[in-house]
Structure formats: structure tokens, C-alpha cells
Design a binder for these strands. Structure first.
Length: 264
DNA sequence: GCTTGGACCTGATTGC
DNA sequence: TGCAATCAGGTCCAAG
């Protein structure tokens, strides 16, 4: 999409999680996408019109590219399905279709001149693979926090871009109990946790993501990282490290999988 | 100010 | 087989 114009936007419903932008199709028609970027779980398309199209996939959103060309990022599709909500008809003949059964995703238009003030990104913590993230950063961010470390790592203002799966996996790798209070993590534990977070994210990206039911890449292919989970969705199975049984608990309304034998 | 739990919505799975 | 209950990868907001 980068460098190309959106010839036409096809909007098939008024809202996703939030209402789609007013006069959405009109505002993006013929706009060139000057830059396509990602911050945390947010995608941003900087348009030649002076606006930024900000997009989030929620839990079940996906983009699929199809069209005239063939290659790694293209595949042929049949007709539109019930959950194809927004279709970008691009210069060059390709279409980029946003599909989202649960509609937890969203799209917003925001002035580029004021992009830094976009509220949903203003409070974001550092990216796991950025220079701003380190064990020393975790020491500062977690000290004094009363919430369980599992909840703190899901908090995007502490660290950006970690979801439920990768928090469970990173805590397992670093041998830290998800129930441990955040303020007891700084020090030795944080020095194990920071590299574990880096490794899980880097490996998941290399594996093409995690496909449990909905996720697929833009070529329609599934991710492979789900085959490498150590604890996530392995309730009742033996821990790969110590043999104890993997448990499932609910924290802040989300499933947590962990090994009670070797996560302390 | 921090933390938790409910809400948003649909589809797949599980249990009766 | 059919129905109801439960659960799911994220984020926001009200209430405690």
C-alpha cells in the first residue's frame, strides 16, 4: 500500500468497535499512502491529504491482500464474506480487505500535524524490541506497583504490544509466577524477564505470529508460533521444563497459563 | 491514582 | 440433534 493511492474505499457498515470516520470513503479517496507504520498494536497510514488513518485489529481483525498481481503477499479470493467490512481498492488493481468477525478492531482518521497527540498512543510504554526497553526500565516501571506482574505486563502503558499469549510465555521463560506482585520483580527477576520478553516477541514474529482460530497474515497464511507455546493453552499438560502440571487461572478477566512447579 | 471487572460482538466448542 | 453456556488473541471506562 505504501506509495500507492487509494482509488476507492468500500465501506460495508457504519461501525466496527467505534463508528467509522464520518465521510470515510470521501476523505480517503485518491489519497496516496506516503508512509505505513506500526506503533504497538496500532497501524498508521500517513495520507497525502494530511490525515493519518489509524487502524487496530482488535482480537479477530485481519487484512487480506488480493488482486491482479501474484506473489508472496497476494492471493486470489472468492467473493466478499459477511465480515469483510472495509475494502481498499488500490492503485495497481489490488484490493486490501479488512475482515473482523467480532468487530473489536477500529479505524480512525486523525490530523497528521497532531499525530503525537493521538490519545490512544500517547500513554504507550516502550516497544519490547526498542532501545527504550530493558531490565533497568522494568525496574523503574514495576517498582511500587501492586498489581500482579501478569496484569502489569498486559498494561500497554508499561510495555507496548504484549498480548495475553506472549505475557504468559515470557513469564514462563523467565520462571516468574504470574501471581507475583509487580513490585517484587525489579532486580534479578527483571533481568531474566526483559530478555525473555524480547525472545518471545522476536521468535513469534519470525514464526509468522500465532494462529489459534482467526489470525492469518496478509497472504492468508496462518502463523506457526502456536506450535511453540510452552504454557499457553496447555492446561493439564506436563511442564516442558519440570514436568509439573500446567495450570490455568483467571486474572483481570483473562486466562493465565503457568507452571506452578517452576514459576516462582 | 491505581486496580479490577464489565462491556463491546460473533463464532466455535462444550455439556446437557 | 439442538440448545444454552462458556470462552476467545484487546481496549476502554466506571466503580471500588
Amino acid at each position: 500500500m505504501e506509495g500507492k493511492r487509494i482509488l476507492r474505499l468500500e465501506q460495508r457498515r457504519a461501525d466496527l468497535r467505534f463508528p467509522l470516520p464520518e465521510r470515510f470513503a470521501e476523505r480517503v479517496a485518491n489519497a496516496r499512502i506516503d508512509r505505513l507504520a506500526r506503533q504497538a498494536k496500532f497501524l498508521s497510514a500517513h495520507l497525502s491529504t494530511g490525515e493519518v488513518l489509524i487502524m487496530h485489529l482488535g482480537m479477530t481483525g485481519r487484512f487480506t491482500i488480493s488482486g491482479q498481481r501474484t506473489g508472496d503477499f497476494h492471493h486470489e479470493t472468492g467473493g466478499l464474506t459477511a465480515h469483510d467490512h472495509v475494502i481498499f481498492h488500490m492503485e495497481g488493481g489490488e484490493t486490501v480487505t479488512y475482515n473482523d468477525p467480532r468487530r473489536f478492531g477500529f479505524m480512525e482518521l486523525w490530523p497528521a500535524a497532531n499525530f503525537e497527540a493521538y490519545p490512544r498512543l500517547m500513554t504507550m510504554g516502550p516497544e519490547p524490541l526498542s532501545n527504550g526497553f530493558s531490565a533497568a526500565y522494568l525496574d523503574t516501571a514495576l517498582s511500587g506497583k501492586a498489581a500482579p506482574i501478569k496484569a502489569a505486563l498486559l498494561d500497554q502503558s508499561v510495555i507496548a504490544g504484549l498480548g495475553n499469549i506472549y505475557v504468559c510465555e515470557a513469564l514462563y521463560r523467565s520462571g516468574i509466577s504470574p501471581k507475583r506482585l509487580s513490585r517484587s520483580v525489579p532486580g534479578m527477576r527483571a533481568s531474566r524477564l526483559a530478555p525473555a520478553i524480547n525472545a518471545v516477541i522476536a521468535e513469534a514474529i519470525a514464526a509468522g505470529g500465532s494462529s489459534i482460530s482467526d489470525f492469518a497474515g496478509t497472504d492468508g497464511n496462518l502463523g506457526y508460533f502456536q506450535h511453540r507455546f510452552d504454557v499457553y493453552d496447555r492446561e493439564g499438560e506436563p511442564c516442558k521444563r519440570c514436568g509439573a502440571v500446567v495450570k490455568r487461572i483467571v486474572q483481570s478477566g483473562r486466562s493465565t497459563f503457568y507452571c506452578s512447579g517452576c514459576q516462582k
